[in-house]
Structures are given as structure tokens and as C-alpha cells.
């Protein structure tokens, strides 16, 4: 079923399994060190496979960049 998700501030149409780890695989981020929030709450990396997304969820995917 087609779902609309907000990923890093952009709306995407998503038509895959609603587990969070499936979304990361869809985005080709499974092998990147990153952290994920859903609706401003951290989903720990070891719980992604058990976390089910819902229509309209707002997802932030972050990683490390240069900083002081």
C-alpha cells in the first residue's frame, strides 16, 4: 500500500514494508552509520527491525559531519 512519509523534511511516496529497517534499505542507507528519529523520538539502531512506521510519520535520518 502506498504511504506518504516525511523524510528529512521531504515528502516521499513509499510502497514497501513499513518496518523502519526496510525504509533504510529502500533509501540505500542500511550500511551507513546513521541515527533515526520518528516523530522526534529516537529509534535505537537495534530496534529498527521491530519498529513499524505509520502513514504521515516524520522521519529524520542523520549522520556525522565535520564540526567543531
Amino acid at each position: 500500500m502506498l504511504s506518504v512519509l516525511q523524510v528529512n523534511g521531504k515528502e516521499i511516496d513509499y510502497d514497501n514494508a513499513m518496518q523502519l529497517d526496510a525504509l533504510l534499505e529502500f533509501l540505500e542507507l542500511s550500511n551507513q552509520p546513521c541515527a533515526v528519529e520518528v516523530n522526534q523520538t529516537l529509534v535505537p539502531h537495534n530496534e529498527r527491525d521491530q519498529f513499524t512506521l505509520n502513514e504521515g510519520d516524520s522521519i529524520e535520518i542523520v549522520t556525522l559531519v565535520g564540526g567543531g
Binding site: G9, C34, T63, L64, G66, G67
Partner: peptide, 29 residues
């Protein structure tokens, strides 16, 4: 070494991550 947490770019325009250039065995991040 200090780093920031950001969503803008997961990799640079050459497909590289900063972690490719920081020896995580040598540096505490």
C-alpha cells in the same frame, strides 16, 4: 575530535562519509 550531527548530506558529492577519513580506533569522537 569533534563532529556535528546533521541530516543534510549522508555522504559527500563523491559518495564519501567523514567517517571514511577518521580512524575510529585512533580517535575518540
Amino acid at each position: 575530535v569533534t563532529v556535528a550531527v546533521r541530516r543534510e548530506r549522508l555522504v559527500d558529492d563523491q559518495g564519501r562519509s567523514i567517517l571514511d577519513f577518521i580512524d575510529t580506533d585512533k580517535y575518540t569522537i
